[in-house]
């Protein structure tokens, strides 16, 4: 069964730069946790370390009792991961791909059939299941990636910009699914640039900047910490990431383009 995610003093170094710079975070089970941050702030690096896809430079990371470095196979069987850009076998059809993923994850035939049928119908891609993945649109590929990440009912669902390319119907279905996951004691972590989605879906949010968490908590916690009762997530985000006053930038841009 899943336990909390605990991260202590996590560092990831590339060349002379730290993508993650002493990050500390605890994510309890049953939460939908949003990771926000500007481009290059370390979100993807963090998520890939949690999925055991990337080694850390130093630090302590546990998903429940498991360590992503030493218990890689166990972690991968507990996690469902949707990468930033869908990485799929383009010469397979979605149906063949789901079958492959289910077989590897040891899901029985009956369960597999039922889940695939329901998910494919829900995401509106049942007319695409026999096409090559390589010939599908970006949004449809994203749906295939999402289905293959949730098909084994993972204890931890990690989505890196998981809403990218989804039509409103599918985005709504995914949001409901995430809430259902969390209500069953599973943990959902997702990074996004769509702040409205984070604000409406997540129980807790952290904002990453230069490899560190600059604020963490519920929306209420954040507002009270910032002392701005009326502010929304966008205001908080821009203030903490040093982009509070964008007016001069926009003015310069307008002049340049004219």
């Amino acid at each position: 069964m899943s336990g909390p995610i605990v991260i202590r003093d996590l560092y990831k170094k590339y060349a002379d730069n730290y993508a993650l710079n002493g990050l500390n975070l605890t994510i309890d089970t049953g939460q939908i946790y949003g990771i926000l941050g500007p481009n290059g702030s370390g979100k993807t690096t963090l998520l890939r370390i949690l999925c055991s896809l990337l080694d850390m430079t130093s630090g302590y990371v546990r998903l429940g009792e498991f360590n992503p470095v030493e218990d890689s196979e166990k972690i991968k069987s507990m996690v469902g991961y949707v990468p930033e850009t869908p990485a799929l076998y383009e010469s397979l059809t979605p149906l063949e791909y789901f079958s492959f993923v289910c077989s590897v994850r040891g899901i029985g035939q009956d369960v597999m059939e039922r889940r695939v049928r329901n998910l494919v119908d829900a995401f509106g891609i049942s007319d695409k299941v026999d096409d090559f993945i390589g010939s599908l649109s970006f949004g449809t590929k994203q749906k295939v990636a999402i289905i293959s990440a949730i098909i084994h009912d993972p204890d931890y669902l990690i989505l890196d910009e998981g809403m990218n390319g989804l039509d409103p119907r599918s985005a709504k279905i995914l949001k409901d699914l995430l809430q259902d996951f969390a209500s069953h004691g599973k943990t959902v972590i997702f990074s996004t640039h769509i702040l409205e989605v984070a604000e409406s879906v997540c129980n807790r949010i952290s904002i990453l900047f230069n490899g560190k968490i600059v604020i963490e908590g519920t929306m209420e916690d954040m507002r009270s910490e910032m002392g701005q009762k009326q502010s929304n997530l966008e205001d908080i985000f821009l203030k903490l990431t040093g982009d509070e006053d964008l007016k001069p930038v926009i003015e310069t841009l307008k002049r340049t383009l004219r």
Partner: peptide, 10 residues
């Protein structure tokens, strides 16, 4: 979107 039966290779 269409509801359809498909053969599922397992």
């Amino acid at each position: 979107v269409e509801k359809r039966q498909f053969h599922f290779p397992a």
